[in-house]
Design a protein around this nucleic acid. Structure first.
Lengths: 198, 198
DNA sequence: AACAAAACGGAGGCTGACTCCGTACAGGAT
DNA sequence: ATCCTGTACGGAGTCAGCCTCCGTTTTGTT
């Protein structure tokens, strides 16, 4: 007795409708204005009041995380493709690039990402995805190191930070694609083992 | 006739007093709260109304640039010391470190710095200092390249970007000093020429 | 001491974050 | 088909910060 499982009351129709409308509007605004977009504007565009937005997504980070979910799935798919590559060095390189693009989904995204890492509040909806990303980086890096293709002193977290930085720079919009390319090359030269043999 | 030089009316005493009070208060607040600190709070602490703050410093960037002036002078001094070092590689390394510390003066400083670079409005008071910094980096880098100590494909702007990124990461407060050190090493390995002879 | 220019500061308009609470409505029970 | 209950809604309202207008005060000069 006591614990009536109650199964779960299926979610109301308007709830699902509003949630979907909010996510769509939020994505548009984050794309246009970056992660600092006005949440009131998002609510208005979704055709709901501000309270409804906050009921669905208590914080800006929660909304961001929900919108990011789609992208996150793309990244997982890409990770699967990358895993099939033969060259460990190439796997690492492409994974870093994939992460960077993920971080560049919206202008200013790296900021709340790092904030989540700082606070380490487990309720921050951005924390968990990041931990996964770091673990995966670690994995690909280790393979490259074992093959003698990456310096042993480098860590997965280092490369994760490098990817976030690059995405941050890219998001500021102050730098052309050519400079970004050179910056990536610089980082690659930084972690690569350059023994002209093992 | 016509152009009465008027010499210059010496600046009023209250103007100087208020300016000094504002700068001091601003520095405190930027240190505590980062570059996003409340300007109203700064004005209040300086004992002036908001209008006075905006009269002295029309934009947040103007105030930031003025507060940064002191640090800027420290950087110039440090540059002079560095110039005396014998090793071109060491000069470059220390210069990059000095820039990074300068960028880390206040949390969030890299953001408006890059924004200034993006807009390229010559009236942005942060633009000019940056151009100088890039030029100096270029100079030290070129010396290192000539000595065969740095890759020829790297540019001064690349290293400037790398320094800004590192400062940005540092400013997020999400990363311990050890990781930052490894990141710096990574970058250094990235631009260094690793011929075991020239 | 008187004057004019320069500078001041508070009140107020604006935008965006976030909440409270009376109302409307969806969906199961009759 | 209707009732009934709890869930969700949304607008009005509070709060904080940015920035400006304009009547008043201060300052240096004559």
């Amino acid at each position: 007795m006591g614990v009536k499982e109650q199964r779960e009351r299926k979610p109301r129709a308007d709830v699902q409708r509003n949630r979907a409308a909010l996510l769509e509007a939020a994505q548009r605004h984050f794309l246009r204005d970056g992660v600092g977009a006005s949440l009131e504007a998002v609510a208005k565009e979704a055709g709901v009041g501000p309270a409804t937005l906050y009921r669905h997504f208590p914080t800006r980070e929660a909304l961001l995380a929900a919108v990011l979910q789609t992208r996150s799935e793309e990244l997982v798919a890409r990770r699967a493709e990358i895993a099939r590559l033969a060259d460990a060095s190439e796997r690492l390189r492409q994974w870093l690039r994939a992460m960077e693009e993920y971080f560049s989904a919206f202008s200013g995204l790296p900021e709340p990402l790092m904030a989540a890492a700082r606070e380490r509040e487990p309720d921050n909806p951005l924390t968990l995805p990041c931990d996964d990303l770091i673990a995966t980086t670690e994995e690909y890096l280790r393979a490259a190191q074992t093959a003698g293709l990456a310096r042993p002193s480098v860590t997965g977290y280092d490369l994760y930070l490098a990817a976030v930085s690059t995405a941050w720079i890219s998001g500021t919009g102050a730098t052309d694609e050519e400079s970004l390319g050179r910056l990536r090359t610089l980082i690659e030269s930084g972690y690569r083992e350059q023994n002209d043999k093992g």
